[in-house]
């Protein structure tokens, strides 16, 4: 039984810490509309859902019930509009359901606009934040905007110039010779 419950928290090959698989799939679908992949990768590829999952397991734990309530209402709304779960809708249909959330038109959710803003903010944090928080996989977000990441410093040639260095992740202070 234990094995079963563990494997049921797996999503995209990773163990979820706060969300259910269903919620993760739902948030992934939303993330894919907030920052869709075009000729460049988007929020799904950047793993924004894992950033949100880990945040909800830690510093955003107080928002978990708000997520559950908001997602339930959005799914109900999707079914009302298109007779299918949100994840199964076309991109255009998903946008229209999300649009109703954004403009506060979902009757079951009094704070719909605020919940949309929360979702949007968290998805973008998951795309553009430090990869150590669970999102921004392969530094996709930083590559999208040309951010060079946590560079320790810049060589003289980059002073007052556009920095076109590939992004790097902060991995602690450079070790001094002889330090272990």
């Amino acid at each position: 039984m234990k094995m079963k419950s563990q494997s049921s928290r797996e999503y995209r090959g990773e163990r979820l810490q706060a969300l259910t698989v269903r919620q993760a799939r739902f948030i992934d679908a939303i993330a894919g509309r907030i920052l869709p992949a075009t000729d460049t990768p988007g929020a799904i590829e950047a793993g924004a859902v894992f950033y949100i999952d880990r945040s909800l397991a830690g510093p955003y734990a107080h928002l978990l019930s708000r997520y559950a309530r908001g997602l339930r209402a959005l799914d109900k709304h999707a079914k009302r509009l298109f007779a299918a779960s949100f994840e199964k809708l076309s991109g255009e249909q998903q946008d229209s359901a999300l649009g109703d959330l954004e403009s506060g038109k979902i009757a079951e959710l009094r704070d719909g606009e605020a919940f949309f803003e929360l979702l949007r903010t968290h998805v973008l944090e998951g795309v553009f934040g430090e990869p150590s928080y669970g999102g921004n996989r392969d530094m996709i977000g930083w590559k999208l905007v040309g951010f060079p990441g946590q560079q320790w410093g810049y060589p003289e040639t980059y002073i007052n110039k556009v920095v076109d260095l590939p992004p790097v992740i902060w991995e602690g202070l450079p070790k001094k010779p002889g330090q272990s």
Binding site: T121, F128, G129, E130, S132, Q150, W170, L173
Partner: peptide, 14 residues
């Protein structure tokens, strides 16, 4: 130095 260096966008902005 380390206290200056770890100003990442999640803990300092988000």
């Amino acid at each position: 130095t380390a206290e200056y260096a770890q100003r990442d966008s999640i803990s300092y902005i988000a």
